[in-house]
């Protein structure tokens, strides 16, 4: 049998929905595991790259300094980088803050929002450990070169499967109209 392809995945400014959709390939997970091995990924909880990978799946765009760091790390370590889902492709829901100044966003979240009840000391988190928020949310392709994109919020499991299958085997997949969606 051919050598297994190595896959890495990560969730940046995403909601983990795209990762859930990977799991939605259901019993095909068994087929997948025959032909791939997972490296750095929240699925197996491997935190650091231990080798170069064939395919990197990126969920989410870049909303903070850590996202940018991880995305660059993936670009360095993955031969093919795939933007998985609307947030990775165009910023998605987090990018809806792009027209609002960062200061206003933070004040709304921690000080003025109608659901802010317990922050009586009016603390805005600023621990040095916390990644710095960027001025706006950036699509992955604004930061590094992205080779392929899988649209959807989250992408349909069949679309993820078809893409992975094609990337791994080099064979074309037939993608039905119904599974190619942006929502």
């Amino acid at each position: 049998m051919a050598e297994k392809k190595i896959i890495a995945t990560t969730s940046l400014a995403g909601c983990f929905g795209c990762h859930m959709s990977i799991l939605d390939i259901d019993e095909r997970l068994l087929d997948l595991i025959e032909i791939v091995e997972f490296n750095k990924s929240p699925i197996n909880d491997i935190k650091k790259f231990t080798r170069k990978c064939d395919i990197g799946l990126i969920e989410g765009g870049c909303c903070n300094s850590e996202n940018v760091h991880v995305l660059k790390l993936f670009r360095e370590n993955c031969r093919i980088l795939v933007a998985l889902g609307e947030c990775a492709i165009m910023g998605g829901l987090p990018a809806m803050r792009n027209g609002i100044p960062l200061k206003e966003c933070i004040e709304e979240a921690y000080l003025n929002g109608i659901t802010v009840h317990s922050n009586t000391q009016k603390i805005v988190p600023n621990d040095p450990e916390l990644p710095i928020l960027l001025d706006r949310v950036y699509p992955c392709s604004d930061i590094v070169k992205i080779d392929y994109s899988i649209p959807g919020c989250p992408p349909h499991a069949d679309l993820i499967w078809a893409t992975l299958y094609s990337l791994i085997t080099g064979k074309e997949s037939d993608i039905p109209y119904e599974v190619f969606k942006y929502d």
Partner: peptide, 30 residues
């Protein structure tokens, strides 16, 4: 164009055209 939150998603002709052409992501920067 935030399709995931748009009320018109599924009825939008711009989106439908993009589906017809199978546009995964625009080639231009947002």
């Amino acid at each position: 164009h935030f399709c995931p939150t748009c009320e018109k998603s599924g009825y939008c002709e711009l989106q439908a055209l993009a589906y017809r052409y199978r546009i995964t992501a625009p080639r231009y920067p947002f």
